[in-house]
């Protein structure tokens, strides 16, 4: 409640400035200063985290690089501003960052009252459950009578209550303030289930005594669509960010990877030619990149710089990383997931 009021107040306060900032044209500003200022998380495994060599890595970070690659043909032309959860939207509204790629959930109130716009959903997250393998449970429907460890005062607790009530199951909750202590309580066996956002569960699992003794159930009981955010009122910039995201998906859909992108430009497939901005015989091009203020080869630049969506996913959070997250809902629509890009034509 409190946060809602705050959100409205902030939204109102920001309105005038957002309009003022909108006139500027973020794409031109970015091109002029020569880099994208990207707001990221202060540290979230797999999404944005500085490694020992001070390089930022992660899915959110790679999205920023993709935008930089689309504009400058150089994925390194990006500066990262680590932002805390509380200041992230203000930083975007005030123009401190051009783009916010910081595991921010897309909700109606944020979308409509804060002067912000979500450019897509780079990761479909949601609340999940972790249990011990020894319990021989394969579905959340079998959790009747379980003891659940969770954080206090978050939506997690409410979602949990809804889910168990809807499925007519009983449960006992062990609610603890600090995330580290929740994990510890679960590890010590004070409860059967550990629940929080699913991507978080994969990260928390690593810090358990025996990570391999635990599995994460496939069910997701809430919607947490995470994606890049821009300021409202600057449609040019919004289009660049939105279509960078769609370009990543389209590249995966067409099988264009970092390794084979050069080869693909020689393809005779008309769709491939269109997407990769290959010039026609008469020297004219489809004009999709120039239409949003970028080059004809913008998708080639993106894929060369950071790879397609699938490559980004596998590199940062996929099954070969310590996090071992399966594609699940984040698979392409043709593989049964939710990631779907409108056609480029």
């Amino acid at each position: 409640m409190k946060s809602k009021v705050l959100a409205w107040v902030m939204g109102a306060a920001v309105g005038a400035f957002a309009v003022g900032a909108a006139q500027a044209g973020t794409l031109d500003d970015v091109k002029k200063k020569g880099f994208v200022q990207c707001g990221v998380s202060q540290g979230l495994a797999g999404f944005s985290l500085p490694d020992a060599q001070n390089n930022w890595t992660g899915l959110d970070v790679d999205f920023c690089r993709a935008v930089a690659a689309a504009i400058f043909n150089d994925p390194t032309k990006v500066k990262f501003s680590p932002l805390s959860a509380k200041e992230r939207f203000t930083a975007l509204q005030s123009g401190e960052v051009d783009l916010l790629s910081r595991n921010s959930t897309w909700t109606m109130s944020r979308d409509t009252s804060l002067g912000l716009k979500w450019a897509g959903v780079t990761y479909y997250d949601g609340q999940g459950f972790m249990v011990r393998k020894s319990m021989n449970i394969t579905s959340a429907k079998q959790l009747d009578g379980a003891t659940v460890c969770t954080n206090t005062g978050t939506t997690t607790e409410l979602n949990l209550a809804d889910y168990f009530k809807a499925n007519n199951m009983k449960y006992q909750v062990v609610a603890i303030e600090d995330a580290n202590q929740v994990r510890q309580a679960y590890d010590e066996g004070r409860c059967d289930i550990f629940t929080t956002d699913q991507s978080g569960l994969y990260a928390e699992r690593l810090a358990l005594k025996n990570p391999s003794d635990h599995i994460i159930l496939p069910e997701i009981i809430s919607k947490e669509p995470l994606g890049p955010v821009v300021r409202q009122g600057d449609d040019g910039w919004f289009n660049v960010v939105k279509w960078t995201y769609f370009a990543l998906l389209t590249a995966e859909e067409l099988g264009i990877t970092q390794a084979n992108v050069d080869e693909m430009t020689k393809s005779t497939n008309p769709e491939m030619q269109r997407v990769l901005g290959v010039k026609n015989a008469d020297g004219s091009a489809a004009g999709f990149g120039t239409g949003i203020g970028l080059n004809e080869e913008w998708i080639v630049q993106i894929v060369k710089g950071v790879g397609n969506y699938g490559e980004i996913f596998e590199r940062n959070v996929g099954t070969n990383t310590p996090l071992k997250i399966a594609r699940g809902k984040n698979a392409l629509w043709k593989d049964g997931g939710l990631q779907y890009a409108p056609p480029i034509r």
Binding site: G43, L44, A45, G46, A52
Partner: peptide, 9 residues
């Protein structure tokens, strides 16, 4: 931030 690093979790 370091503690979130999956390389050392």
């Amino acid at each position: 931030a370091s503690l979130r690093d999956s390389a050392w979790a």
